[in-house]
Design a protein around this nucleic acid. Structure first.
Lengths: 197, 197
DNA sequence: CTACTTGGCTTACAACTGTTCGCTAATTTA
DNA sequence: TAAATTAGCGAACAGTTGTAAGCCAAGTAG
C-alpha cells in the first residue's frame, strides 16, 4: 500500500470513528479529539497529521452529511420518475434514509441548532440547497410563480426535517404514523399554496 | 434575611447565572458546574446545597422555559381577543417573545434536539402542550374535526418554531421577512386543511 | 442560654482534556 | 544507493473538570 493510500485510509478511519461516536447522546462539540483518536486506533497526536483541529473534522463531517443528502434527493427523483405520488414517494424515501443513515441525519439536525455558528451555517447551506431544488421542481411541475413556490418548498422541507427529528426517537410503528402525518401536512401546504383565491 | 429567603435567593442566582451562560455558543451540556458556580458567585461545592447535579439544574431550566412558553400563549390569546388577525397576531407575539427572551427560546430549541434524552423529552412535552392548546382552539373556531385539527396545529407549531430558530440568527430586518414568510406558510396550512374536497 | 442545623467555604484528588516536542521507521525522491 | 520526507508514536505539560471531606459561622429551635 502506497503512502498516499495509507494516509487516506487513516483519514477515513478518523471520519468513520467520529460518525460512530455521534450516537443519540453526543454532539460534535461533545466528542473529544482523544476519543476520536482512540476509536480510530491512532495516537492522539497523530490526529494532527490529518486535521488542523476538531473544527476542521466537524466541517468535513457536515460536508459528508450534505453529500448524503444530495444523493437522497437524486434517489427520490429517480423513484418519482418511475411512478407513484410525489409526496408519498418523497416521504418514504426520506424515512428510509433516516433509518439507514441515522447518525448522518442526527448530525445535520443537531448541528443545525448547535453551539458552533460555523456548523450551523454549513448545515443551513445544505438545507437551503435542498429547498432550492424543491422550489425549481414545484415551479416546473405546478406552474406556481417562483416566490410562492419558494415559500411552499421552505415549509415542506421544514416539516419533513421536523418529522425526521421526531422519527429519530420513535420505533418502527410510530415512524409509520409520523410518515402519514407529515404527508397529510405536505398536502395541506400544497393545497393551500395552489388554491385559486 | 431569614435562612429560607437567603437559600431561595442563592438558588435563583444559580438559575439566572445558568441562563446567562446559555448564549449562542453554549448548550446545557456545554456549561460546567464550576462555570455556573463562578457566575453565580458561589464556591463550586456550594452548588450541591441546591441541586443534586447539573442534570437537575437543567431540568429546572427547561421547566422555567416551559412556563415562559405558557405565558406567551396566554398573552397571544389576550391580544387575539382584542382584535386583529389570528395568524398575524400570534406570529407577532411569538417574534416579540423571541426577541425579549432569546436565551429561553434558545434553550428550548437546542435541547429539543440535544444530547440528553431527559431534556429532549421535557422540551417535547412543553411543545406538545402548545400543540394541544392550539388544536382545541382550531376545533372551536374553525369547526374542524379533532384529528385533522391536531395535524394542522402540529404543522403550524413546527413551522413557527422553525421560523423562530431562523430568527434567532437574523437581524431586525430579516426577522420581519421571516415573520411574513411564516405567516404565509401558516395560511397555506390553514387553507389546505379547511378546503372543501 | 444552649444545642442543633445548615449554607457556604477551602483544600484536595484523580480523571480527562488539547497540544508541544522529539524520535523512529518506512516510503519516496534524486 | 543516499538523502529527504512524513505518518505515527510516547512522554510530558498545564489547564479544566466533578466531587469528597471537613470546618466554620450564623440562623433556628428547645
Amino acid at each position: 500500500m502506497s503512502r498516499q493510500e495509507q494516509k487516506l485510509k487513516t483519514r477515513q478511519n478518523i471520519i468513520h470513528a467520529a460518525f460512530s461516536l455521534l450516537d443519540e447522546n453526543r454532539s460534535l462539540s461533545a466528542i473529544s479529539l482523544r476519543e476520536v483518536a482512540r476509536e480510530a486506533g491512532i495516537a492522539p497526536t497523530s490526529f494532527y497529521r490529518h486535521f488542523k483541529d476538531m473544527d476542521e473534522l466537524g466541517l468535513t463531517l457536515v460536508d459528508e452529511a450534505g453529500l448524503a443528502l444530495r444523493q437522497l434527493m437524486r434517489q427520490a427523483r429517480r423513484r418519482i420518475a418511475s411512478g407513484g405520488g410525489v409526496i408519498h414517494t418523497s416521504v418514504e424515501t426520506f424515512m428510509e434514509f433516516i433509518a439507514a443513515n441515522t447518525n448522518v441525519f442526527r448530525l445535520l439536525l443537531r448541528e443545525h441548532t448547535g453551539t458552533s455558528s460555523a456548523y450551523r451555517l454549513a448545515v443551513f447551506r445544505e438545507i437551503q440547497h435542498f429547498i432550492d431544488e424543491l422550489t425549481d421542481y414545484i415551479v416546473e411541475k405546478q406552474g406556481v410563480e417562483y416566490a410562492l413556490a419558494h415559500i411552499q418548498a421552505d415549509a415542506m422541507v421544514r416539516l419533513v426535517f421536523s418529522a425526521g427529528a421526531e422519527a429519530l426517537e420513535a420505533d418502527d410503528k410510530l415512524r409509520g404514523e409520523i410518515g402519514e402525518k407529515v404527508k397529510t401536512q405536505l398536502r395541506f401546504v400544497q393545497l393551500g399554496a395552489t388554491i385559486k383565491r
